[in-house]
Every structure is written in C-alpha cells, then in structure tokens.
Amino acid sequence: MAEPALALVQSSPSPARAQIAFDNVALTLGGKAIIDTISLEVAAGEILCVVGASGCGKTTALRLAAGLYQPTGGSVRFEGEPMRAPRREIAVVFQDYGKALLPWRTAAGNISLALETIGMRAHQREARAAELLAKVGLAGHAAKYPTEMSGGMQQRLQIARCLAQDPKVLLMDEPFGALDAMTRQGLQDEMLALVASTGATVVFVTHDLEEAIYLGDRVVGLLPHPGRVGLELTIDLPRPRDQLATREQPEFLRLRRALFDFIKASE
C-alpha cells in the first residue's frame, strides 16, 4: 500500500492545472451522510477511474462532479469556479442508456437534441450528426430508433450525443457495465481512441477493476459508509494500450492485485 501512495505524491497534478477539484466535499441526502469527505483533483486530459464496492457512492460522486447535486460541505470546482449547476463543457454518459435516450427520436435525432441546444442550424445539424455517428461506428444507422439498436449501439449513440456537446470533460457512470465482454472490450478501445483524439478529461466509474486499470491514468478506490477516498493508484502502463499485451504485463497484474485487496478489505 505504501508504494502506490508514494506514486500518487509524485504524480499529483498541481492545483493550477486541476480541471475538476473536490475540496473536502461532503454530501448528506435525507439525513444520511452519503459522502464524507472527498478531496480530489482531476487534471485536464487525464483519465481517472473510480472503483469501489456497490453502494459506496461512486454515482453520487459523479453527480456532484456533473453539478447535478450540490455538496452540503466543501466545494466542487471546475477550472477554479464553483459548480453551481451542470455546464455544457461537462457531458454525462449515464449507465442506463435505455433511459437516457429519447425513444421517439432516431439516432440522428438524439444527437440533434444536443446540437439544437447549442443553437446549430438545421442544415448543419444533419451533417454534424452523421459525422458523430461515423465517429462512434454507427454510420448508416442514422434513421434507426434506439429500440431498434443493440445495447452496445445504444451506448455508442449516447457517447456520440455527449461528443456533440463538444465537452471538455466526459463523466461516465459504468457505461459498459451492462454489455457483454466482447462488446465491452471493443468499446473500451474505441473510447480510448476517441478521448485521445479530442483530448477530453474523463472520469470513469466502473466496478470492473481490470477495466479501471486498463483505461486509467489513475485509479481511485472509494470506501463505503460514508463514501471517501481509500486508495489512489497511478497507472504507469504504456499507451496505446492493448487488450492482450497490456493485460499480461507484470505491472498490470500487480495493480490488479492491489485493487483487488483493497476492495476485499473495504467490504
């Protein structure tokens, strides 16, 4: 445990560069302390993965970062400013894609929803939607309704809608949790490529420890009741990552062991 803590001190982003900052954040909902307390900084362009036992407050922490909840203690800041409400630069990929998409709009129409709110003209929207669909591997599915698509396709569509916001930050809540292993690995690599091309900051919540290590620059482990940071690991695996080679590296296995022990102990 001493080793990763040391690594954290070395790599900890300086406050000036922090894009999202949790400063002694606490949240009480319905008289129950859900989070108490979290201090955390996410640097611009970083991929931060958050793991923890079920019910430990991962989703709640993400909602705080999104501005969907206001902290009852401490502050959440985006580029130094306190977060008072959701902002367009911060996109959220919800876990339940089936509920987050508009079933009465086609794939292109769902993306258009985001484009409409930024005031893009109708004739530009169509081209931009097609471009974004192609980007997430859904070219040719523009006219399909979400219910005509597989789970993986629907989650791709939600990601495309988030990209339509032109976000600086992507907050993702177990986005691939409901998908089968093959689809999940494909989407992991697609997401890494997308993020590399846009330079967006990513906060990625998952309960899959290997996924966290595979994707992240850093992994934070939360402890439950109330939610707080129990572990930070810096992932020094080379990029681009590879589903087979990366997962076979001794460093990957060592990190996996450390995370596994942490989760085991936290339960």
């Binding site: 959701p86 509920k99 508009l102 929803l113 709110t117």
Partner: peptide
C-alpha cells in the same frame, strides 16, 4: 426522470424541455 437530467446537462430551456421531452414522452 433520467431525461430531465439529460436536459439539465444539455442546458435545455424550460420551453424546450416541455416540447422536446415531456410532450413527446
């Protein structure tokens, strides 16, 4: 309710929420 959150994240106006989310739903 998730759709209302999507609307908040996208900064949709009240009118847009009614006509693009609530009414069609």
């Amino acid at each position: 309710p998730r759709l209302y959150e999507v609307a908040r994240v996208l900064h949709m106006s009240r009118l847009a929420v009614i006509f693009k989310i609530a009414l069609p739903s």
